[in-house]
Design a protein around this nucleic acid. Sequence first.
DNA 1: AAAAATTAGTTCCACAAGGAATTGACTGTC
DNA 2: GACAGTCAATTCCTTGTGGAACTAATTTTT
Lengths: 197, 197
Amino acid sequence: MEQPDILPGTTPAGPRLAGQMALPDAGIGAEMLARQRLDSFTHARLWKNPCGFAARFNYLALRYNQPLYGWVAERFGLARIEFVVIYSLALQDGITASEIASSTAFPKNTLSRAVNRLIRIGLVLRRTDMIDRRQQFLSLTPAGCAIFEEALPRFVALEEEMLAPLSLVERETLSALMAKVVLAMFHGDTEQPPRGD
Amino acid sequence: MEQPDILPGTTPAGPRLAGQMALPDAGIGAEMLARQRLDSFTHARLWKNPCGFAARFNYLALRYNQPLYGWVAERFGLARIEFVVIYSLALQDGITASEIASSTAFPKNTLSRAVNRLIRIGLVLRRTDMIDRRQQFLSLTPAGCAIFEEALPRFVALEEEMLAPLSLVERETLSALMAKVVLAMFHGDTEQPPRGD
DNA sequence: AAAAATTAGTTCCACAAGGAATTGACTGTC
DNA sequence: GACAGTCAATTCCTTGTGGAACTAATTTTT
């Protein structure tokens, strides 16, 4: 959830999915990044926390995910995990449920359910690999694509809004430093013995 | 979740709490930050994602929270939300459940349950404010403190490990840039009309 | 000062999430 | 080429979660 010099980070699920597909749309342009009064505890979490870095990226994650997935639930009637599947397929078509599961750390059965619902409501297609009939490659239907195309600008916009206080140079620096940290998590220092995870 | 040029970010709950208080301890020094082979989809999520920044901090949050809260559950038999309460009280003693709720975005009832369990198992104390008898100030018992003291080094260590690839200067830069972004979320540019949230 | 509105915390309950065991499909070994 | 081991996906079932309604304490309105 949150975390800037805050606490360990926590990530509540966010709004449950409402009914099905909401109305066409409502207040699109609303500044989704709700500014908030900094209460003293949140201040402590962010700035007097021995795990300051962790606190900050958790906080960013919270303030990013919460409104976006809330909107997705309202607008499309999709649960977070379901939209994650759609987003994943938009990024890389044809992957399997397992790949999404291991990459996102959601349990397999949760993914199975999500995929099945998406297929049922016509947003995703499944075709079984004829070489290894255990795997099933997933892809988006036009309807699934449409949802992604509608949602993506929101996701991009909120990121943009969060980065607004930084200059272009600063953004690149931030991006590069975070990339460095993330990359190091992959190729362990000395090319450690690979672990499936 | 995750999120570096990854997808929207997702944050599965992590291991459920196991039995009560596990054995004294086991492999402390184990590198908790499990290196992993970068599969092609995770690569796409992190590096070909239109929301690259969001993808990265979500990824960091995932890789940070997951192992730590997993360990907390095993070691202390505490659910994530329960440990969040303990951590919160360690950061700022005497706050109320509501304050934690609004700062962390967990629902009030979830916090109520967590607090009550912590009181029941003797990790937290509650005293009702005599001026406004609706509020109850919480604080850690010695046992609660002890848990925090044991856990904190883990949290610090994993953060340290994540930041290892950066030089001291780089860390400060990263820290400062993230602080800038986080701060901007509080005092909106022109001191916008305050919103409670 | 009674009535309406707000706020902290709790209880109720329907639903969803995830661990564990299961099925079905492959891979390797001897 | 049968048998054990592995892996994708699913089903089962228990448990935890969080929305909504509720209680109690306090503040605001008129």
